[in-house]
């Protein structure tokens, strides 16, 4: 029998009673797809070596400037609330992660992904793909313009809905800092009901995934603005200027 939201809420409440760190619990039964897909053995601790002390290099050869604007990829203007999302990528010691790749993907304003496996009967937007790429600046700043995504239904349980979010893929200065996560919007009423968001059982850590509305990022007569800073784990190698031996021209 399929679970109801009330069943999931009870499981979320039970899991919140177990001690958990600020990372998502990869063994998290309320997220049904996780049952057979999480390792049961503890991760083996190893000192990073060789390539693990370095991250791949991306540059302007890889990413065009206009890939950071998700609203200009088609002939027309996408429907929905135009927003700018910006922030800084920092390592665990507060140093900016400069010249590094940020990839984003998301649903459109109606909550529909441009993906063949998304069967949600909400409209596609012919003027919106929902994919962006950019490089961080010297101070770790990223910035992109997009449309605020809508919430969408999924089949984890009956009447399951994901809070609106943007997927982020981020690299650090060493291999061990690799992060894929999701950015959420403040005040979403679906937060308490969502097993993916609630898989992080520490409320303070969960909050780190929520962007803040920032009126200084909002521009008159054009778009609202959100700020979201992304702190990675610490690097195992002190970054030096000489790390960037390849030009990024």
């Amino acid at each position: 029998m399929e679970s109801s939201q009330a069943d999931i809420n009870r499981e979320i409440a039970a899991a919140a009673q177990q001690p958990g760190g600020p990372q998502p619990k990869i063994d998290y039964p309320p997220y049904r797809s996780s049952l057979l897909r999480h390792p049961k053995q503890p991760a083996h601790l190893v000192d990073p070596e060789s390539v693990e002390l370095w991250a791949p290099v991306f540059g302007h050869r890889d990413v065009a400037d206009d890939e950071a604007d998700l609203t200009i990829q088609h002939a027309g203007t996408p429907l929905g609330e135009r927003i700018v999302v910006t922030g800084r990528v920092l390592d665990g010691d507060g140093r900016p992660v400069a010249d590094q790749l940020v990839e984003v993907w998301q649903a459109n304003a109606a909550g529909r992904y441009r993906h063949q496996r998304d069967q949600h009967p909400a409209p596609h937007d012919p003027n919106f793909t929902g994919v962006g790429r950019m490089l961080t600046g010297p101070d770790g700043t990223y910035r992109f313009q997009t449309i605020k995504p809508g919430p969408y239904p999924w089949r984890n349980h009956v009447n399951a809905w994901r809070p609106a979010h943007i997927h982020f893929s981020i690299f650090g200065t060493d291999f061990t800092q690799r992060l894929v996560t999701q950015m959420y919007f403040p005040g979403d009423p679906l937060f308490p009901l969502d097993p993916i968001y609630q898989s992080i059982t520490d409320p303070k850590a969960r909050d780190l995934l929520i962007a803040q509305y920032d009126h200084d990022v909002t521009t008159p007569e054009w778009s609202t603005g959100y700020r979201w800073d992304i702190v990675l784990t610490g690097t195992h190698r002190t970054p030096l200027e000489s790390d960037i031996e390849e030009d990024n021209a």
Binding site: V104, R117, V131, H167, V180, Q182, I230, V231, L232
Partner: peptide, 18 residues
């Protein structure tokens, strides 16, 4: 500084990552 937690790559990652 507190590191941002991860989240699943989800079912539609091909859209953004491929």
């Amino acid at each position: 500084m507190s590191a941002v937690p991860g989240q699943t790559v989800g079912p539609f990652f091909h859209l953004g990552l491929a």
